[in-house]
Simulated assay, not measured.
Amino acid sequence: MATVTPLSQRVLAGDVRAASRLMRHIDDGEASATADLQALFPKTGKAYIIGLTGSPGAGKSTLTDRLITRFRKQGKRVGVLAVDPTSPFTGGAILGDRIRMQEHATDPGVFIRSLATRGNLGGLSRATGDCIRVMDAMGQDIVLVETVGVGQDEIDIAQMAHTTVVVTVPGMGDDVQAIKAGILEVADVFAVNKSDLDGADRMVRELRMMLELRHAVKAPAMDHDAHHRMVRAKAEGRHVEETPPPREWEPPILKVVAAKSQGVDELVQAIEQHRAFLEETGLRKEKERSRAAMQFVALLRERLLRGALAKLERERGRLDEVASRIAERQADPYALAEELASQLAE
């Protein structure tokens, strides 16, 4: 059993300053954070995680702000992780989402934190999962994770959240983007924001059409012989026990105007209905197993890479020096990688 550290003890008591300090250590990749996370881990698993993702400019931050208000009215403590893009050149992040949620800054029941993606292809840094656990351990009932836009690889949120809300907006080519990005596989709820603009009804129709098409494609065809046996049995008047298909969640498509707080109550209701569905079908536990696997693999990958780079530096020089030799064709990257991998495997 992990030893409770002074910092983790303060986090468990709901100390916002302690949680902020630990999250900074996590985001900076400091090794000292591991002991604190180990101490907090047994106390996690209670918070409900809601992801919001969508194209830049879709109004995710405004919608997040309105959701905070609704959940606070229900008496729930809310944590928000706003994942901002990091510049690949400067390493800096915009971290502008907290500016748009200033009205909640003085509410002790709301804790908002910005994180940088640090160039992670999935749009979510590994630190995000650890910071969710910190918010969970400190007693937040709901954790809202607002991510960078939707892209081909940016679907990590579907594994990390219990309910994923995909925010679209008319007039931004989202109808085409939806097909490209595979957001049909990600979304538990669609929120067509800024639905007072032209094109909102068209956006809803096209999303519905794509959902129906997906449903038709996914519908399992009955085995040919089984179908004939069923037809023959019915013709002979024998009772046939038909296995009902497994329950599936049909993502609702909601029209929302977050700036005017229109449709937000209906969105909260849809989220709660999805939560009830997950509980009734046992899919919540399945989602949590999937998230645990993803986070463990990410942690393992990071540890192995750190060990490989340390070994490389000890035996072959710093990474930039090795890269220079590779660029000048003085070293074979394939042989080096294979050699390091085999040594780490021993």
Rank of each mutant, 00 (worst) to 15 (best):
A276R: 15
K311M: 12
G14A: 07
V16Y: 00
A219M: 13
R10S: 14
M172T: 14
A39E: 04
F277S: 04
P88G: 09
A219L: 14
A221I: 01
G129V: 03
G14Y: 05
G91D: 06
A82G: 05
Q152A: 06
A341T: 13
W249N: 07
L52P: 02
V231T: 05
D153C: 10
V186E: 04
L115F: 01
R77D: 02
M230S: 08
L344P: 00
L344E: 11
K234Y: 08
Q343E: 15
E206P: 04
R214E: 11
A181W: 02
P252Y: 03
G171A: 03
Q102V: 15
K218Y: 09
Q262D: 11
G182N: 04
E185H: 10
A39L: 07
R126W: 04
R77Q: 12
G123P: 05
A82E: 03
V192G: 01
T5S: 02
K234N: 05
F190W: 06
R10N: 11
L211K: 08
A47D: 03
M1D: 08
R303C: 06
G29N: 07
R329E: 09
D27F: 01
F296P: 04
P108A: 11
V143F: 02
D156W: 01
V297H: 07
A345D: 12
R318P: 04
D65P: 00
S261M: 10
P245V: 07
S32Q: 15
T147K: 03
P85D: 04
D188P: 00
V110C: 10
E288K: 14
L63Q: 00
N193L: 02
R329G: 05
F277Q: 02
A327Y: 07
V165M: 10
S342N: 13
T106I: 11
T62G: 13
T168H: 04
D198T: 03
R291V: 00
R205T: 10
M160Q: 14
G151T: 02
T117Q: 01
A221K: 13
